[in-house]
Design a protein around this nucleic acid. Sequence first.
DNA 1: ATAACTGTAATAAAAAACATTACAATTTTA
DNA 2: TAAAATTGTAATGTTTTTTATTACAGTTAT
Lengths: 136, 136
Amino acid sequence: MSNSRFPISLHILTLLNEAKGAVVSSEYLAGSININPVLVRKEIMNLRKHGFVESKEGKGGGSFLAKSAKDINLGEVYQSVRSSNVLGQHKNEPNPKCPIGRQINQHLDSLYSNAENALIANLSKQTLADFASAFE
Amino acid sequence: MSNSRFPISLHILTLLNEAKGAVVSSEYLAGSININPVLVRKEIMNLRKHGFVESKEGKGGGSFLAKSAKDINLGEVYQSVRSSNVLGQHKNEPNPKCPIGRQINQHLDSLYSNAENALIANLSKQTLADFASAFE
DNA sequence: ATAACTGTAATAAAAAACATTACAATTTTA
DNA sequence: TAAAATTGTAATGTTTTTTATTACAGTTAT
């Protein structure tokens, strides 16, 4: 994860929720998040692939939520953008000649996976609807 | 967190635990982790600051655990290297003119802090001794 | 005294993240 | 049907972050 994919995705989803079904352009979304529209479109591609949003091409096009905000839980959103461990990018190549180095990755992996499950379980307690309802 | 600080620190601690009190040089640690010794010394500086290890300067110097491995819990280790949110680096500067953008950071922060507490609680179930005991 | 370390700063290189540009394809609407 | 607005996507460039390297003063053991 580029580590800002989660906040970007959640920001997009929150804006789409606010739009109540109206299509929203990537330009507009990018303006609120304050990032480049192309990055937004890439994130939307991913959100679409995971069934959270749909898009409409052409003039007047844009994106909208593909399902009710109360059916989108934040744990799922997290998992949709997750691409590497939260606790350590595995570009980690310890020395195979060292008895510790040789084994550490497998132990780190199981540690990570437990810890990350706890994180996801926590996120899963909230839906997009819950998150969005905190906004005034 | 540079996102590999946690695995590096844990790797160092595991090696020091293995050494059973003998001092271990940064050169040796770097060799097992397969990174530069200066990075190891920086991590050790942090571990020392948090009371996990001690170091000895001069010839024959190096580092060793400052307390028993069963008194070092992994949640604390995580917190000692933590410097930014796991779920989003806050270089995030949304548009203050957008009603969502203006508020989102505060909501993300509380979401992050909850999720991260769950992560830390999970890590805190294990001590360095537990982690190290899994090695053969 | 010399050798083997740590501590630390400065600099350089590599990698990752992000922005920008460009343009074909699609759709609306005048 | 032509123009305008938009998505989809690739390619390239820029910036930022991470990591490595070099260098050397200070410390301690022998």
